[in-house]
């Protein structure tokens, strides 16, 4: 269960989210509410930017260490204009998306098969735990030996990093579905496939989603690490190369983009999915 807890806690600050302002009937107050919400979210960043600017201006810090917020903005604009940023964002997302598809279609079926038998599931738990502790990133050197500095290397590592938590949590989810539900369906004449579809998979869904979110958290970092090492384009490559040329403004621009992308991915895509399933149904405890 620690895996699942880990997922919830790592994904955590979701729970801190305040209630959205209650909907109003008047169009005016609804958009005012949204404006207020946007201001609330942007305010601390504004404070940070001001502090940053003050530090840079008053302490005579060289441009090799810290650049002003304005420099970062201009760097971002330049990168977009030249097309590098958009290209690299696309590349990184492509890799993550492709790896996610492969991981989901491998890990979930395997997890289901392993989870259906409680003894098998229990036997595989330490195995999964061990493999997960050898994080995908640790396999990067081996992938480099096998496939050199290529896209395949990066993909392999992300797939590994995604598959493990997903498979593990799927297995856990299936395992914790109380057998009496399956037995009940069986006694009413359901076929095995039917029981799988209507009992096990819905029952395991919360765990699967949590595993997915955890996997994406790890996978995203593995993506960046892989890109840094393999130098095949992408956001990780961009910030790493920028460091070699000491372009601090580019590094920071890249970091901000990475942070924003992750936020968008997590808050706008993953969290709503989790809210609708896990938030509503809760997670079964073993």
């Amino acid at each position: 269960m620690a895996q699942v807890q880990e997922g919830r806690q790592a994904a955590l600050p979701a729970a801190l989210e305040t209630e959205r302002p209650k909907g109003t009937t008047s169009f005016g107050s609804a958009s005012l509410g949204r404006l207020k919400e946007a201001a609330r979210i942007l305010a601390p960043f504004g404070v940070l930017a001001v502090i940053w600017w003050v530090i840079k201006a008053s302490f005579d810090i060289s441009d090799n260490v810290l650049v002003s917020p304005w420099a970062v903005i201009t760097a971002t604009v330049e990168l977009v204009r030249v097309g590098i940023l958009t290209d690299f964002i696309g590349l990184s997302i492509q890799r993550l998306g492709g790896a996610t598809l492969i991981a989901v279609f491998t890990a979930v079926p395997i997890g289901i098969v392993l989870g259906l038998n409680k003894n098998v599931a229990t036997a595989f738990e330490p195995f999964f735990r061990f493999l997960q502790n050898v994080s995908g990133i640790a396999w990067l050197p081996l992938a480099v030996v096998w496939y050199g500095l290529s896209n395949t290397t990066i993909l392999l590592v992300i797939i590994y990093t995604l598959t493990l938590p997903l498979g593990f949590n799927t297995m856990l989810g299936i395992k914790t579905v109380p057998p009496r539900y399956a037995q009940m369906c069986n006694s009413l004449g359901a076929s095995r496939l039917r029981v799988l579809r209507d009992v096990y998979i819905p029952g395991a869904l919360p765990n699967i989603i949590v595993g997915f979110r955890l996997g994406i958290g790890y996978g995203w970092r593995a993506l960046i690490a892989g890109e840094m090492l393999a130098a095949q384009g992408g956001l990780g490559d961009m910030i790493f190369q920028a460091r070699t040329a000491n372009l601090i403004d580019q590094i920071m621009a890249g970091m901000i983009v990475i942070g924003c992308l992750y936020l968008v991915m997590d808050r706008l895509i993953l969290q709503p999915i989790e809210d609708v399933t896990v938030g509503r149904w809760g997670v079964l405890r073993s």
Binding site: R40, L42, A43, I248, M252, I258, C260, Y262, L263
Partner: peptide, 26 residues
């Protein structure tokens, strides 16, 4: 806490590995 929440959430997603280039520069 409420005020700084968005900031914390942003940096949580950015934690660790993404800081490596900047950390090397510093």
């Amino acid at each position: 806490a409420k005020f700084f929440e968005p900031l914390i959430m942003f940096f949580s997603g950015l934690s660790g590995i993404v800081w490596i280039p900047l950390a090397i520069a510093w």
